[in-house]
Structures are given as structure tokens and as C-alpha cells.
Simulated scan of single mutants.
Amino acid sequence: MAIDASIVRAFAPTGNLRASINLGNPILANRDAATGMPFGVSVDLAHALGERLGVPVELVVFDAAGKSVQAVSDEQADFGFFAVDPKRGESIAFTAPYVLIEGFYMVRDASPIKTNEAVDRTGIRVVVGKGSAYDLFLTRELQHAEIIRAPTSPTVVATFLEQNLEVAAGVKQQLESDAAKLTGLRLLDERFMVIRQAMGLPKSRGPEAASFLAAFVEEMKASGFVADALGRHKIAGASVAPREV
């Protein structure tokens, strides 16, 4: 199906479709150790969108969610892959989510903290990746605990240990992976949030472009593309978001 030229211009005003890729969330993207090239579900979706629009894709890669969001907000990239959040929504038009990811807390085995409710207490310090969905969510939700911001999500556990903090917060799979390499750490039993991971573009690109991207995401879910990508990249713990009509 031919795409209206105005839609193509809205997405790729420079001629290339610049995709903001966040390597701070291993469920969505990683870097190949041999080639240095990014790969993952979000990279696959970026190339699929470029193919649909008939324009070359340029990957603009970042190590943290906040940087990836800022690139799209500042129109240094044309679209990206983000957790839906009202603060980010001030400048970015989000689609419905394409995957759902769980956020968990981690503590030391000897910690008296057993439940999520016990985290929000005076004197408890919770480390998050700066600018991540967890940072934005917990900044609104926690009333008594103090938030400590690590430079990126992958450095949360290192910061937690180095600064002798009480709680680490992040993607369940990232925390589990880090805990498996160390000793004396445990995840709490319940998630504290579900991240709705979506695609988004600058609101300045207009409602037609936003509607096109929203329809693209629904098609990628319905066709099995997202599920196939999760399987191909051996991603566990993330589920395809339900369709939204």
C-alpha cells in the first residue's frame, strides 16, 4: 500500500528515519559483542517501520532511557521506544504499548524489608536508573523513601552495592541477572509496577503521523511480529501487550 508523502516527510524530514534506541533496557535492545551493532525487539520494529515508509533507518543509540527520550523530544531522533509516562507525554505522542514489562525491588538477604509497602519508609534509600520509567513512577509514588539515581539502569545494582543502599529498583530480568552473578541478594515477591512499553514520536510531527504509528504498532502485535521478535531474541519475562482498537 502506498504511503502518503506527507506521512513520510513527517517521520523522516532529513531523508533518514532516525530511531532512538535505548540500550539501558536489555529486554528491548542490546549491543552485539562481536560486531558492536545494536539488536533486539526495538531494533527489529525500527527496521520494519523504515521498510513500511520506504526510507533508510538510522539508529541513534543511547545508554539510558532519559537520553533516548530527550533525543526524540528535541527532535534529534524521529521516533523511539519508551515506557508510557505522563511526564514524557508532554512532548511525545505515544502509541498503545507493544510489550509489558514488570518492575521489581531487590534487597539484601538480611534486609528486614519483606514487602513493597515496607519500602516507602523514612531512612530507606531506593536506587533507580536516572530518567527511567522507574525513576519517574517512584518519584511520584514514594512519599517517605529517598530516591538515589544511578547513571543508567544497568548500573543500578553496582550503585546499590557500592553505596550500601537499602533497595534497588528496576526491570525484573535485569535484577535477576545481576543477582545470579552475586550472592546475598533477593527480589521482593510482588512487582511494584507494570511498564507499558510503547513507540512514540514528537507531537510536533502531527496527528496523522501519530495515528499512522499507532496503527503500525497494532498491526505488529496482531501479526505476531512482536511475539516472534521476543522469541527470536530469547527474551523472557516480557509479554506482548493486548491489542487496543
Rank of each mutant, 00 (worst) to 15 (best):
S223G: 03
L45T: 05
S73T: 13
A236I: 11
V41Q: 02
D74M: 10
A227Q: 12
V194A: 06
R125C: 11
T115I: 07
S153T: 05
S111N: 10
Q76W: 10
Q76M: 14
L136N: 10
N164V: 02
V107K: 02
E218Q: 15
G50F: 04
F11C: 02
A10I: 07
P97Q: 08
D228K: 15
L230I: 11
L49Q: 10
P97F: 05
K130Q: 09
P13S: 04
V99M: 01
G50M: 02
R186Y: 01
A215V: 00
M199D: 03
E162D: 07
G24P: 01
V126E: 01
V60W: 10
E244C: 05
L23Y: 02
L23Q: 06
H47L: 09
K221S: 00
D63P: 12
H47K: 15
V61G: 13
E146V: 03
I235Y: 07
A110V: 15
A209T: 10
N116T: 14
E102P: 05
E58D: 15
Q173R: 05
S6V: 07
R52E: 12
E244Y: 11
T115N: 06
V240G: 06
V194N: 10
I3F: 13
I92V: 13
P38R: 07
I235A: 04
N116D: 09
E102R: 13
F79C: 04
R196K: 05
G184K: 15
S20E: 09
R88H: 11
N164L: 04
R18A: 05
L138Y: 06
V167P: 03
L185P: 06
P97I: 08
G224R: 09
V171S: 04
V43S: 12
A145C: 01
V128K: 06
P26E: 08
E58L: 03
M1E: 14
R140Q: 10
F82R: 03
V57D: 00
